[in-house]
Design a binder for these strands. Sequence first.
RNA 1: GGAGAAUUGCCAGAGUGGUCGAAUGGACUGGUCUUGAAAACCAGCGUACCGCAAGGUACCGGGGGUUCGAAUCCCUCAUUCUCCGCCA
Length: 423
Amino acid sequence: MLEIQDIRKDKGERIIEGLKKRHFDAEPIVQEILDLDSKWRESKGNLEEIAAEMNQISKQIGLLFREGKQEEANEAKAMTGQLKSSEAELKVKVDELEATIQDLMYLLPNVPNELVKAGKSELDNETTEEFGNAPSFDFDAIPHWEIAAKHNLIDFELGVKITGAGFPVYRGKGAQLQRAMINFFLAEAAKAGYEEVIPPLFVNEDSAIATGQLPDKEGQMYHDERDDLYMIPTAEVPITNMYRNVIIPNEDFSVKLTGYTPCFRREAGSYGSDVRGLNRLHQFDKVEIVRIEHPNNTDAALEEMMNHVKGLLEKLGLQYRILRLCGGDTGFTAAMTYDFEVYSAAQDKWLEVSSVSRFDTFQANRLKLRFKNADKKTKLCHTLNGSALALPRIVAAMLENHQTKDGVTIPECLHPYTGFKSI
RNA sequence: GGAGAAUUGCCAGAGUGGUCGAAUGGACUGGUCUUGAAAACCAGCGUACCGCAAGGUACCGGGGGUUCGAAUCCCUCAUUCUCCGCCA
């Protein structure tokens, strides 16, 4: 969530201007917020005046009683009726205004970083870097779902029977490969100084709001209504929420956390070739890296995270490119996002395998995640996170790009974890 | 799932209707003293909102209520602990 102080400062000009890069017209919302905010301040001021008066009178009544001046006390009591009712009235008004302002604030997405270009959709994303060469095959490369079927690695139909579409069953070397990659990713993250956590896979409403899944992406999460819990769409949610309502001591920077979790996404409305095989699932595995930073260090942290992901892809021997998402394609909560895509020769498409984002104070504001700056003022921290990496698509890319005529070669970095060198 | 007890500031812990944003101790920060440290002493030591400021308001697990006035009484929810039941 953006900071209301930020809107007051320049009448929201910076925000309105910045959000144009998302093709988001913030002006009417900002206007309404400003309008309601001044009303709110006025009412709030009045309310506090009355409250102060009430407090005064109450104090006096207390004194009178102690001095045994019953009558005077009762007289004073009688005077409070009018004040009390106008206080109640104002309170309702103030609460309403607050709620409305809050709702409006929820509508405003994060302001894109200065590096982010204006744009409407993925077509406007910029490719910032490209690494590696496309694999060449002297046979007909087949897509991963065929490879998976051929070697009995993943059974999609079985998943349909047990649960439904988008819940595959990994088996044999397919399951082992999956587990090996998780361990590899976690080990690499540990090497890079990230503390591993195993968080809950369900979160409460407060957590889902704090990282921005609610109220915005309600329909994307599985929701257990009975206990009012949400299944996590990414480890970002529980891990970042470890720091909800926390003022972190300066010496704790940088906070670097990693965690492997399954992720659950309803993916309502997806269909077609996008959902073929491992391309889009309702349940998938991911190793996430999360950072909480002093604002001064955010640029450096982002770069470090990018390099971490690059390192993983290079070790896996995959060709990839990095996109800086344009304003319109950048997620609601993010100030800037880099997507890592691996080229799949067999499918002739680029598969998104990682997404590294900085949120600046947007999440921290909802999280109430703060630190104390040099002059002891509490300030909002910055949060960042990235996938390192998301399993299904990286598995798909590996199977496809490392396929041989009658199997798949496992990259060397995984050998200690798989126990086998080929499929 | 049933019964009981509890939830107060960074921590421990007092406080059962008015002068309580909250005693006291510890931790921490600054100062005095010291060659330095320890000890002792003095001072400071929560968050947020409104306000140029003075100041005001709100917060004692969350929400609601009673009252002129609530940390204190009532309702409700959550969490923790103990006992019983069930169970990987």
